[in-house]
Nucleic acid binder design. Sequence first.
DNA 1: CTGTTAGCGCATTCAG
DNA 2: CTGAATGCGCTAACAG
Lengths: 345, 345
Amino acid sequence: MGKTERGRRRHKGVGRVTLGDVAKHAGVAPITVSRVMNNPDQVSEKLRKRVEQAVDALGYVPNLIAGGLASAGTRVIPVIVPSLSILTYIDVIHGIQQTLEDTGYQLLLGSTDFDLDREAALIDTVLGYSPSGIIIAGLRHRERAIQRLEACQRPVVEIMEYGASCIDSNVGVDNAEVGRCMARHLVERGYRRIAYVGSRMDRDYRTIQRYEGHREMLELAGIDGSRLLQNDEAASYKTGGRLFMEAMASYPDLDAIHFTNDNLAAGAILEANRRGIRVPDDIAVAGYLGLPLSECLTPALTTVSVPRFEMGVQAAKFLLARLDGEQGEALRCDIGFELIVRDST
Amino acid sequence: MGKTERGRRRHKGVGRVTLGDVAKHAGVAPITVSRVMNNPDQVSEKLRKRVEQAVDALGYVPNLIAGGLASAGTRVIPVIVPSLSILTYIDVIHGIQQTLEDTGYQLLLGSTDFDLDREAALIDTVLGYSPSGIIIAGLRHRERAIQRLEACQRPVVEIMEYGASCIDSNVGVDNAEVGRCMARHLVERGYRRIAYVGSRMDRDYRTIQRYEGHREMLELAGIDGSRLLQNDEAASYKTGGRLFMEAMASYPDLDAIHFTNDNLAAGAILEANRRGIRVPDDIAVAGYLGLPLSECLTPALTTVSVPRFEMGVQAAKFLLARLDGEQGEALRCDIGFELIVRDST
DNA sequence: CTGTTAGCGCATTCAG
DNA sequence: CTGAATGCGCTAACAG
């Protein structure tokens, strides 16, 4: 008795077991406990065991916040995407998560709703958690955001879009090339009156990049590439069905529709099924993404498949490489895509 | 000259702008800057402006880690789910995210792969970030996990499953009741030889709860409820198609299949479309979830719809209520479900 | 291999 | 309304 109760407790000691408690219990210095938790091989077998027992006995759980403050960094990786309601980003996040989870990093999720100002604010916030690095969708950001990202001296991986210049590392696809690729396929198949159909294209500029590729390729072939139809709904099957009917009404002579994504294209095929419209005989339908549904439809959907999960994995690997000390040049990867020709064209 | 350069810099000062820097620049005490950032109305107009200018001038971004350590809590909400490849959880996370994002909380994402030991470890980890609260899927956890969750003295919301006893708060559905509801529908429709078909049912015990409800209801009606088929693949459309064919082979006299989820059921209908099998004339198909796809199929899928997004929203609201000081009884909410009868039954 | 000392950047308490 | 002093829990640096 005696020296218990230090008598201040100005802050709420909260009662949680601390490193110090464990150290006392094991009869060692706090730093030794710290080492047992973080660098076990720097401690002798004997002390280690003693400490481990104390940890178990007291049910000690490290305060990562304190550790983070002391060592100027937490094992947190913010992932900033435009939306959580779009499957593409979900698959990428899944890939990131799966790759990072066993390395002890935690994902801090942020969504910008396609708003670059919001993105900039979010970047500030998450940087406040002294993350180990950051993964962010897109190559376009506010100037301020880019400055902060560069100033933070931590690995930054920009994903989704592959392009010439990035802040630090980049994994993505060349959207214009995707657009060209599918347009070329349609032309080769003999289609001549082709429309590009999407929804909310202005929100996601990558959609416009694909459209531009599409248009460029058509015009190269001497075909009108300006047929464009879009609306302001979220990309759902229903929206796809509606846009399908609308497109056929707006351009009665149409022989093919190039949709911005598989959700829309699948919705079109489903609508055609319902109405007895024959695809591709009456009209051909093409998509983009390579969603699982695309191959289960009747007719199966021609699409450009993008390895979304793998993109997440690669992004995480780049991050881990940097954290592992890899210096130098930007790590860059064009994750590629694959034209999958099926029955709908 | 003189007192610049304090001459130690043992830790890497990292160079980031700190509260102190801003305070110096504005000629006030650090605490005043702190107040401007956190409780603006406790500071006079004049000082506040001066401080705000300094903040802008230096590009100060608060170190949330330091703040978290000092105040024993960060504005982080861990969300722990079994999987990120299952749409259900994604929708719920989306609801949580949308509700929390404007309140300044960040989601810390964790996935357990349906492993309760992994879950317990993950809980320890995320608790290390001194989160404001925590949202976790399921009502079943390891004893150790429950203890930690109770000991941390922070709001805990258990989601997905609605049940009698929870740690702190609970939002979910009554799975057994869902199973009963659909089974009742099938019986009322006149089906008598009904199979329950799923995949990986042992991984997610909620699936089994639904099956038990299904079986109970059938037996109440004097019908064999033991027809069960499952495999070990992930729930995809393709798996659904395969299970559909397998079920018809295993139970040749079947007149209806009750699938554990819409992915599988949709896959079955898609497979039927391909093969020219008539649903529901040859065999009826029912699902669970209320995925958007379900209503776009031909025939449209009969399903039980669960408000997944709303479940996330409600979970976040419970959390915010607790953080807002709401004490007392467990906050509980049976989010309910809706039987949607369409053409497939 | 182990311990001592100092301080990460901020918010809390208490005083004016 | 403003400021000074103190410590949140842990780890980096430096001895021994």
